[in-house]
Simulated assay, not measured.
Amino acid sequence: MTAHADGTVALVGCGRMARALVRGLIAAGHPPQRLTGVSRTGRGARALAEEYGIRTAGTVAAAVRDASVVVLAVHPHETADALAELAGATTPRHLLLSLVASWRTEAIAARLPDVPVVRAVPNVAVAERNGVTVLGDTPDGTALAAARGLFDGLGQVLVLDEDLLEAVSALSGAGPALVAGFAEALAAAGRAQGIPAVTADLLAARAVCGTGALLAGGATPAAVIDSVASPGGMTEAALRRLDEGALPESVRQAVDAAVRLSYGRLVTA
């Protein structure tokens, strides 16, 4: 067991990603009483306490006092203030897991001297224990192992160079929203063909879910396409229209826009 593996977690910030993390951890068997939430207004922490039974704290210092892992999950513009509070409350016995976009690991570490810091980019599918979390590589093997241990039960965990994490945030972090947007467009197309709304929504959702299962099972996108699209068939006609509509280029531009926004507000040491 590492120094940070006793299961006590403080969540500084209780928004969407913190909610997904709490739901996944509890589903994986993490005792809710070993999770403590604190949020700027208190509303987010109270909502998580009511829904999942976690503890709440009125201040950052109170939240982290008995925690071994501190998850920083605030908005980028709130991060400097949160770090100022953490600076007086954290010690080398804590592990700081930063889920904050656009703040490099060294920028966090510079404000918390001697506190181990690992940057993590999970996606909201960790709520269903079917997500992927990318950790920024660090020479601190103990901290990296502890971070991996927290996310291991929530899906796949990868470790990549820090320089790739803005792109990871755009592709993987934003990915569920982009895929959900496609699912909604697919359902809307079904409704336009006269399929009842509930049925169209279900068919689109199951198409996305089933395809995800195939890809997760090792099939390549090309193999999935080949298994469905016969020459001269309706699937081929549909794919041709997507190509004419420049779907691949639109997706590339969407990811590029997210990356450029993240780099535009990037905070370094």
Rank of each mutant, 00 (worst) to 15 (best):
G175Y: 06
G173L: 06
A73N: 09
L83Q: 06
L96E: 00
A146L: 09
A185E: 12
H77N: 15
T138A: 14
A204I: 03
A127S: 15
T199C: 13
D140H: 07
A84S: 14
P92C: 02
I108G: 01
R65F: 10
G149N: 08
N130T: 10
V117L: 14
T79Y: 01
V134H: 10
P76A: 07
A177Q: 09
G155W: 01
R191A: 04
I195D: 01
V198P: 13
L202R: 09
D152I: 07
V168T: 06
V179F: 04
A147N: 03
R119I: 00
D114Q: 15
A110S: 14
V208E: 02
A200T: 09
A200D: 10
S102N: 11
V121N: 05
V71G: 15
P196I: 08
E85Q: 15
V71Y: 13
S102M: 06
L72Q: 04
V70P: 14
Q193P: 02
L164F: 11
L97Y: 05
V64I: 02
G190F: 02
D140M: 02
L96F: 07
A167G: 09
S98Q: 06
D140T: 01
A189C: 13
V64C: 03
L154N: 05
T133D: 11
L150P: 02
H94W: 05
L150V: 10
S68D: 05
L86S: 13
L96H: 00
G190E: 00
E162Y: 09
L150G: 05
A177L: 11
A147G: 10
A89C: 05
V208H: 03
E85Y: 10
A107V: 07
P196K: 11
S172V: 05
A73K: 03
H75Y: 07
L165E: 08
V132W: 00
E166R: 10
L178R: 04
L95C: 04
A110F: 04
D66F: 00
T142A: 15
P113A: 14
R191M: 14
V117M: 12
A183H: 04
A197P: 03
S102F: 04
L99R: 03
A185R: 13
R111P: 11
P116S: 01
F151L: 07
V132Y: 04
S98C: 08
H77W: 14
H77T: 14
D137H: 15
L158F: 00
R191D: 00
L178Y: 15
A204W: 02
L178F: 15
V118N: 01
I195A: 01
T138G: 11
A183L: 06
